[in-house]
Computed example of a mutant assay.
Amino acid sequence: MAFSIVSWLDKLKNNKIFEMTVVAVIIISALEIGAKTFPLSDGAVDFTKILDKFITLFFLFEISVRFITDNNKKAFFKKGWNIFDTLVVAISLIPVDDSEMALLARLVRVFRVLRMVSVVPELRVLINSLLKAMPQLFYVVLLMFIIFYIYAAVGSYVFSTINPVLWGDIAISMLTLFRVMTFEDWTDVMYETMEIYPYSWIFYFTFIFFTAFAFLNMVIGIVVSVMEQEQAALARENAEENHEPTIASLQAEIQELKALIMAQQAASKPQE
């Protein structure tokens, strides 16, 4: 009896309609959170409360199905997204709407929208790629900060008398340079300094080359490289779950066949 229930829940978890239902409930949850930020009538407020309870119970059922059908339950909570989903659902179950913790309850319900990431594998790959790229990105960001700091110091020393609002100190200068890097009316800043220093355009062009072109492209390259690795890992994981042959397993089988053929050929040779 228990085995049949687990088998039925496993089929339900892998059912496309159920997966789309989970995504639809997450979207409804996001819309419900947004609706609460507008002035609502008493009837609409009561409806959102009922809807919120239904969403919480549905998420509880969904996370329970995932846990029951997991082949390795001991490793279920070793995955970060499973821990995140469980915490969001567990905290949502605490009745704190009429207490001093009401604000915390609302904030936790906002994070239910992030469950879209744990449900959709493609989104999960993007987030995992970004997190795994952080160690490599750290050095690029550090080098970018050094460039920012040097140019901000130069800009503060040279241009502070022209416009103290933009170049008054090194902190304000870094904010101004961020504006230049994002191309937000950066030509207005450049033309203002060029009226006093005609060759100051070199300052802006070199800064844009280092930051907007060189370093940002390095960041994109690192993220894309890690993303390709994550997609390959996801493909291998899906192949193992579906018992499909992977490239590594096929190569191993080919090597075994090659060794077997060579052994047969060696055994069939006439002994001299």
Rank of each mutant, 00 (worst) to 15 (best):
I5A: 04
W8H: 10
K11N: 13
L12A: 04
N15W: 10
K16N: 11
V22N: 13
V25D: 09
I26E: 11
S29L: 07
F38M: 07
L40H: 07
S41Q: 07
I50H: 11
D52R: 03
D52L: 00
K53I: 08
F54L: 07
I55G: 02
I55V: 10
T56R: 02
L57R: 01
F58C: 00
F58H: 00
L60E: 00
L60Q: 01
E62Q: 06
S64P: 04
V65G: 00
T69K: 03
K73W: 03
K78L: 08
N82Q: 01
I83L: 03
L87H: 04
I91Q: 01
I91D: 00
P95M: 00
A102L: 00
A105G: 13
R109I: 02
R112T: 12
S118A: 15
V119F: 10
V119S: 12
V120D: 01
L123H: 11
V125F: 03
N128K: 12
N128P: 07
S129K: 00
L130P: 05
L131H: 06
M134L: 15
P135T: 06
Y139Q: 07
Y139W: 14
V140P: 02
L142V: 07
L143Y: 15
F145Q: 15
I150R: 08
I150S: 10
Y151L: 04
Y151E: 01
A152T: 05
A153P: 05
F159H: 05
S160G: 02
I162S: 01
N163S: 11
P164K: 01
G168R: 04
I170P: 02
L175W: 05
F178Q: 09
V180E: 02
V180C: 02
F183L: 15
T187A: 14
T187K: 15
D188C: 12
E192W: 06
E192H: 06
E195I: 13
Y199F: 13
F203S: 05
Y204R: 00
F205P: 06
I208W: 11
F210Q: 05
F213T: 14
A214W: 10
A214T: 14
L216Q: 10
L216M: 13
N217D: 02
N217Y: 05
M218Y: 01
I220W: 05
V224P: 06
S225H: 10
S225R: 09
A232P: 03
L234F: 10
R236N: 14
E237W: 10
E237C: 09
E240Q: 13
E241I: 08
N242P: 10
E244C: 00
I247Y: 06
A252N: 11
E253H: 03
I254N: 09
Q255N: 14
K258T: 11
L260V: 13
L260A: 15
A267E: 13
A267C: 09
K269E: 12
Q271C: 09
